[in-house]
């Protein structure tokens, strides 16, 4: 592997790592901070991707189109969905044991898959990136790199910084962190913990859907796409240390590099390398890289 190829592979790793972080961010909120085992995370991601596909013609006819109006409308719908789901289902789950959380969120997967099949069908769909991001940048003499992938990376970095800021530097972040440690105490201090959690949950769903919408042009839209990202998202959150945004970011980067170079250097073992990495890290640090308690 010569230097230029090595550098391109590093870029691939970074880009994949950032994409993973983007997809796992919603799970960091719902599973990491709120402590609900949310298997339906992949479904929220899938809903986002299908919204990017299904909303663009509707938005195009109503507002004359626009990539960002689709994103905003999709985000609003996702927040409403998250708010409703928390009110109708998840608010009953905080004090239940993990098995009941697993059962209910698994049920949601089935419901969303069936609804998707009824509403949009079982075909594979492509989503075009907006024109101003559709170009490519030449890389070496043979390859090019799509601008849209770099755009995703930039969006992801911004979101990561924003999340980190909210959680460590603002009053809202403080309340959320306090609520995850001791619910009753926070409530007795006069904070409406129910509303707070409803908002955090809605934000988690919106983040997952946003990840689906923004990665749809790269990932394409197809049945079962949610279950593909689900496991790797849990790996990111667990390696990073449950509840830690910094940890999730680092974990996503690590996985990006291990997966990319694993595919090239150890193709026979590419499928298990990420899980070997997870096992090693958990042996070394059973609570993940950055445990927040």
């Amino acid at each position: 592997m010569d230097l230029s190829i090595f550098l391109i592979q590093c870029l691939n790793s970074l880009q994949y790592g950032l994409l993973l972080f983007l997809v796992a961010m919603g799970l960091t909120l719902i599973f990491g901070i709120m402590g609900v085992i949310n298997l339906a995370h992949g479904s929220f991601y899938m809903i986002g991707a299908y919204m990017a596909y299904a909303l663009s013609p509707i938005v195009a006819s109503a507002f004359g189109g626009g990539f960002f109006s689709v994103l905003i409308i999709g985000l609003v719908l996702a927040v409403i969905l998250g708010y409703f789901l928390e009110w109708a289902f998840f608010s009953f789950l905080y004090d239940r044991d993990h098995l009941q959380q697993v059962l209910m969120t698994y049920g949601l997967i089935l419901v969303f898959e069936e609804l998707r099949s009824l509403l949009v069908g079982d075909d594979v769909h492509g989503v075009q990136p907006p024109d101003f991001l559709a170009g490519v940048i030449p890389l070496g003499d043979v390859m090019t790199y799509p601008v849209y992938r770099l755009f995703i990376s930039a969006v992801c970095l911004l979101l990561a910084l924003g999340m980190y800021y909210i959680f460590t530097r603002t009053r809202l972040g403080m309340m959320i962190r306090a609520g995850s440690t001791n619910r009753e105490m926070v409530q007795s201090l006069g904070i409406d913990i129910k509303l707070l959690y409803r908002i955090v949950f809605a934000a988690g769903v919106a983040l997952a859907a946003f990840a689906g919408m923004i990665s749809a042009p790269v990932s394409t839209v197809y049945p079962g796409m949610g279950s593909q990202v689900l496991i790797i998202c849990f790996v990111v959150v667990v390696i990073g240390g449950i509840g830690s945004i910094r940890g999730a970011f680092l974990a996503a980067m690590l996985i990006g590099f291990v997966d990319t170079f694993g595919k090239v250097l150890l193709p026979e073992a590419a499928g298990v390398l990420v899980y070997v990495l997870m096992a090693l890290i958990l042996l070394w640090k059973p609570d993940g890289l950055f445990k927040t308690s």
């Binding site: 790793s13 594979v124 043979v142 390859m143 394409t220 197809y222 990319t260």
Partner: peptide, 28 residues
């Protein structure tokens, strides 16, 4: 996630590529 292997193809510079993919993987 094909990017790593596409880079490898660019490095190897073969005359042609043969592939078997189906469904969502084929599209991507």
């Amino acid at each position: 996630e094909f990017q790593a292997l596409l880079t490898e193809i660019a490095a190897l510079k073969p005359d042609a590529v043969y592939t078997f993919f189906a469904g969502g993987g084929a599209v991507k």
